[in-house]
């Protein structure tokens, strides 16, 4: 039923039948699969998006991983371990999804370390207190869920299926983060202050996770036409604000935005404007932790080179021994 031209790059002169078939698949909300023909631009956009999503999971291990060795109770330590482990697992699913598009995981890792591919802007902010761990769960995983639940219906099959698994685990982490904050808010004055301070620091960066405003988001229209993305940045941002405000009330913390209020007419919350210049600076590499995050990822990769080489050499020796055994 499908034209099978895996990895084809000669799409400038794609036969019209292939293009028509692809367009019809998208129009009917059916899934594009790895062996189907797809336009070059679609493939490239997906590789970029899926790889950057994978990179975000991997870099995202750092800010929370910081607290594994300092978690204040054994229960919290176990929760953090499980979460960071899940993030590594999500990175693995997503790199696998990217590889179905013809990308190579080692190459994508190089691109990340060399700064040629991005990861989510949010992970360039530091985690100076333990409350940050809870706020990351609540805001950052909450924002990720707003972004990712619609991606479970993304037009590219392997990506959509990865998102189904990831979303289940993310919503679990979000609840755990919120529960940590709830516990801290019922605790000492110092704990409550720690939570409010973390909320103040993470609120705006979390809103920026949805990307630039719609009138300044050049790739969005095409991604939406291809049904890679299902909603605009501003729609998702609004959804996140509407979801989070009542949770903040229940938690008894304030969100650091004087313009935040319910708008009866719109049926949504109005809110202030994030500092888009700050977002641009962070995306370009000039956030508080960009250099450290990449340095650390690069160091782990470099220091692990001899281990990966040993594994390859051992596998080759094993294969040679087996071949010899079979021949004998």
């Amino acid at each position: 039923m499908t034209a099978q031209q895996a990895g084809s790059s000669a799409t400038l002169d794609a036969p019209p039948a292939l293009q028509e078939h692809f367009d019809a698949t998208i129009a009917r909300d059916q899934r594009v699969e790895p062996r189907d023909w797809m336009p070059d631009g679609y493939r490239k956009t997906l590789i970029r998006q899926v790889a950057q999503h994978a990179h975000s999971e991997i870099i995202g291990m750092q800010p929370e991983g910081e607290w594994i060795t300092r978690a204040p109770s054994l229960r919290r330590k176990a929760i953090l371990f499980a979460k960071v482990q899940d993030e590594a697992g999500h990175g693995l699913y997503l790199y696998s999804a990217a590889e179905t598009l013809g990308a190579d995981r080692a190459d994508l890792t190089e691109r990340l370390i060399e700064g040629r591919q991005k990861y989510s802007s949010i992970f360039n902010y530091p985690t100076p207190t333990f409350a940050d761990v809870g706020v990351i769960g609540w805001f950052v995983d909450g924002a990720a869920i707003c972004n990712q639940v619609p991606l479970c219906r993304s037009s590219y099959g392997p990506y959509a299926r990865a998102m189904v698994r990831i979303c289940k685990e993310e919503s679990f982490h979000q609840r755990q983060g919120y529960e940590l904050l709830m516990t801290m808010m019922r605790g000492t004055e110092a704990q409550r202050e720690m939570v409010q301070d973390a909320v103040n620091r993470w609120w705006w960066p979390s809103l920026m996770m949805f990307g630039p405003p719609d009138d300044n988001s050049p790739n969005s229209a095409q991604s939406m036409a291809w049904k890679i993305k299902r909603h605009s940045n501003d729609e998702l941002r609004q959804r996140f604000v509407d979801m989070t405000v009542p949770q903040a009330k229940k938690l008894d913390v304030t969100l650091p935005d004087p313009e935040l209020r319910w708008n009866e007419e719109r049926g949504h919350h109005d809110f202030g404007t994030p500092d888009w210049d700050e977002l641009m600076r962070v995306i370009k590499g000039d956030g508080p932790c960009n250099a450290d995050r990449i340095e650390r990822r690069g160091a782990a990769h470099e220091e692990g080179a001899w281990v990966r080489e040993a594994a390859v050499a051992h596998a080759a020796k094993q294969a040679a021994r087996e071949e010899k055994g079979a021949a004998a």
């Binding site: 060795t69 590594a88 697992g89 281990v307």
Partner: peptide, 22 residues
Amino acid sequence: LGEWAGNAPVLEEEVALANIAL
């Protein structure tokens, strides 16, 4: 083993070491 988080030589070992630690 928790000190390895984010520093393992391959992603599969991030998962494995965290799993053992857990």
